[in-house]
């Protein structure tokens, strides 16, 4: 077995839920955004505008919760272990990932045959997840530049003037959504690249046996089949 074990400790229940909320919101936001951009389903245009605003706020609240709860919720900073720390350490650089960026890129480009050792998230993965935070803030901000009730707030107006008017903001908002979509495509691809176990974990909170990682020595130290083999 070549995988690390997937334990629930890696993804505590609150974060399984925030992930679900993110997924649903993203789908709703992208869909309603397309309808607002061009009303191909005219009947639901009004609904879409309301939903777009609601889910945009939901994503922001969700993200705020995800970030600000991280010092108070514990999670395993590595796959294949049940040892937990404050979750915020997942956002910070981890020793497990040190010097591994090149190895990951090589691995993805088939220049390295074995799977790099890492923290819960590999280096490129972690960078991508971190990038989603400013990206979400930015797309929400451009959205509020377009929403009339907030569009003439000083900061929004400053940005709108800076980029050249409402039309330019609309295009930026639109392109940022596509960057999000591209992120999601990569995210989904890389998540299933090693089989479906990670999906079962994050969506169904189902554990999966595999190699055991020791956060102290930062090495694989054994294997855990969750007792399935003997059952």
């Amino acid at each position: 077995m070549a995988h690390l074990a997937h334990y629930r400790e890696a993804h505590p229940l609150p974060y399984v839920i925030t992930h679900w909320i993110n997924l649903l919101s993203m789908i709703v936001l992208a869909f309603t955004g397309f309808v607002i951009h061009f009303p191909f389903l005219p009947g639901i245009m009004g609904l879409c505008r309301g939903a777009h605003l609601f889910f945009a706020c939901l994503v922001l609240v969700n993200m705020a919760f995800r970030i600000f709860s991280s010092p108070f919720i514990k999670s395993a900073p590595n796959m294949g272990t049940r040892e937990k720390r404050q979750d915020m350490f997942v956002f910070l650089p981890q020793k497990d990932n040190r010097h591994q960026f090149g190895a990951w890129i090589k691995y993805y480009l088939f220049l390295k045959k074995d799977h790099p050792l890492s923290g819960k998230y590999g280096v490129p993965q972690k960078l991508a997840y971190l990038a989603v935070i400013p990206l979400t803030l930015f797309i929400a901000f451009t959205g509020f530049c377009l929403w009339v009730p907030t569009s003439d707030w000083l900061l929004m107006q400053f940005f709108t003037d800076l980029v050249g008017g409402v039309m330019a903001v609309r295009i930026i908002h639109y392109w940022t959504m596509w960057i999000m979509i591209i992120f999601v495509m990569l995210h989904v691809y890389l998540s299933i690249a090693n089989g479906l176990a990670p999906l079962k974990m994050i969506f169904l909170w189902k554990e999966h046996g595999g190699l055991v990682y020791d956060p102290k020595t930062k090495n694989i130290i054994g294997e855990d089949d969750l007792g399935e083999e003997h059952a």
Partner: peptide, 10 residues
Amino acid sequence: GGAPIEKERA
């Protein structure tokens, strides 16, 4: 099953 995990970091 994925590629085998490296025993030590390169």
